[in-house]
Design a protein around this nucleic acid. Sequence first.
DNA 1: TCAAATATAGACATATTTGACTATTAAATT
DNA 2: AATTTAATAGTCAAATATGTCTATATTTGA
Lengths: 83, 83
Amino acid sequence: MGKEKRKNIRDDEFLKELGVHFRKVRESKGLTQQELANRIDVEVMQISRVERGTVNTSICMIKEIADNLNIQLSELFSSFKEN
Amino acid sequence: MGKEKRKNIRDDEFLKELGVHFRKVRESKGLTQQELANRIDVEVMQISRVERGTVNTSICMIKEIADNLNIQLSELFSSFKEN
DNA sequence: TCAAATATAGACATATTTGACTATTAAATT
DNA sequence: AATTTAATAGTCAAATATGTCTATATTTGA
């Protein structure tokens, strides 16, 4: 009779795949995690977490990543193969 | 001497504009916030917060919104005019 | 106008992200 | 192999998102 279990929208598989994609894009731009982190002014650990898919990061963080990799959000996702 | 002020990556203007865009897409699909919320299985309040840009929501939430509006993430962002 | 549907708001608890450290592992270069 | 660079890991606190409730406002339609 307890409370209903809270459904989590987090999708670990999606996050992992997206992280792999982000890493590829970053590497294609010739940047290290540290360099990207410096540009955005966040901890390098946060970039690492995003690329490994261990955090369900925010849209603003992703926008910062895109901006600092000189890529449009739409391009970032169009080059990501969904499903 | 004090600690450096923590920089916030949150971009309120971006969030507001994105929320407006999300609302347009939802309405173009003929869905109410409640209907979308039911499909995703989240609170309608959360959809409201996202569309008003009061929360820096997660990528998985946005993915759920896109999926349940039958639109690809890339399309969702390509139809969003950045800058 | 009235009622119903839709959207917004506030408040609080819980869950998660992120910052900020330190340490360790892995990879690359000489 | 040794040194340097790059990436991962752990921990804890602070900030923020989300769930959940109730209430109010706004819109829509009869």
